[in-house]
């Protein structure tokens, strides 16, 4: 019997070996290497020179690091609740029993399929203060639109607005969650005379809370790593570094300034930040998230 177990375990490892090797080579090694590099003066082209926690110390005194971090957190604080609320509201609307729903659902999902680069270029045309599409539309309503892309005050809200375009994936997950809400609970609430808001507040939201938690965590990771759209739309974080995000500074340090050690330190700080926020969300969720059957 014992021999059989060993053989089984051996076979198990053999079958799992492609994944184990892949994980070790492409994930575990780079992860550990980047930790070591974060303690080195390393340009990629020359052998790393160990400098202890110098990179971390330098980062603490680097104004641009703080500017980029502040921009990123501010963007996350604005974009995350906005996209979550939009996702839930859209999912609820698309959960209604209306004719032609498949068409509407496709309609709202399609924008999230647009590649990020195309999205950035498209929105430049929409939001351009001078020749854009949006401001003339606003003018019809008597609103003088701002200089969306070139005013440091409006550049971040512009990006938040664009992030709304990508809610399709989250919306789909919410929708799946909504369809999982037991109808008997809604019917029971109906019998108790609950109105729509009360049903939403006391039945629907608690029932989809695990889905909301999932999207919250994915959202935290996604918004803190925002890169492609601002990198293309706002070269050098213009205007005046108002759209210079954490990952852009990380990328510039790694590939343009050849400071891979410094960039690795930034990567680890970001990793710990996301880890902390995820842990915090999970702890907070203990009180607010309801799992069916638990």
């Amino acid at each position: 019997m014992k021999r059989m177990t060993t053989r089984e375990a051996f076979a198990g490892y053999i079958f799992a070996s492609p994944w184990i090797l892949g994980f070790a080579i492409f994930l575990a090694y780079p992860l550990l290497a980047s930790m070591y590099f974060s303690l080195c003066d390393y340009s990629v082209l020359k052998a790393p020179v160990f400098v202890g926690i110098d990179n971390y110390k330098l980062l603490m005194g680097d104004d641009l690091f703080w500017t980029a971090l502040k921009n990123t957190l501010l963007y996350a604080v604005l974009a995350l609740p906005a996209s979550m609320a939009t996702g839930i509201i859209l999912a609820m609307l698309l959960n209604a029993k209306v004719k032609g729903m498949a068409v509407y659902r496709t309609f709202f999902f399609i924008p999230s399929l647009v590649p990020q680069v195309s999205l950035a270029i498209l929105w430049r045309w929409v939001l351009d203060g001078e020749h854009g599409v949006l401001n003339p539309v606003l003018k019809n309503f008597g609103i003088t639109g701002p200089n969306w892309l070139n005013d440091p005050v409006w550049s971040k809200p512009s990006l938040v607005l664009m992030a709304m375009w990508g809610v399709g994936n989250a919306m789909l997950i919410y929708l799946a969650g909504l369809q999982d809400v037991p109808t008997q609970l809604i019917e029971a609430a109906d019998l108790d005379g609950a109105n729509s808001w009360q049903k939403t507040r006391n039945v629907t939201i608690p029932m989809i809370s695990p889905v909301i938690l999932f999207n919250l965590i994915m959202g935290i990771i996604g918004t803190l790593q925002v890169f492609t759209v601002p990198y293309i739309m706002f070269p050098n974080g213009a205007p005046a570094h108002s759209t210079y995000f954490y990952t852009e500074y990380l990328y510039d340090n790694a590939f343009r300034y050849h400071k891979m050690g410094y960039a690795s330190a930034m990567g680890w700080i970001m990793f710990l930040m996301i880890l902390g926020l995820t842990f915090f969300s999970l702890r907070m969720s203990e009180k607010h998230v309801h799992y069916q059957g638990s």
Partner: peptide, 22 residues
């Protein structure tokens, strides 16, 4: 100088601040 890429980014950003009169 080998730090030109970063120096140039800093000058460009300063130029943006100067043009915006911030």
């Amino acid at each position: 100088i080998g730090i030109w890429a970063q120096y140039l980014d800093e000058i460009n950003n300063a130029c943006s601040e100067i043009t915006l009169m911030s």
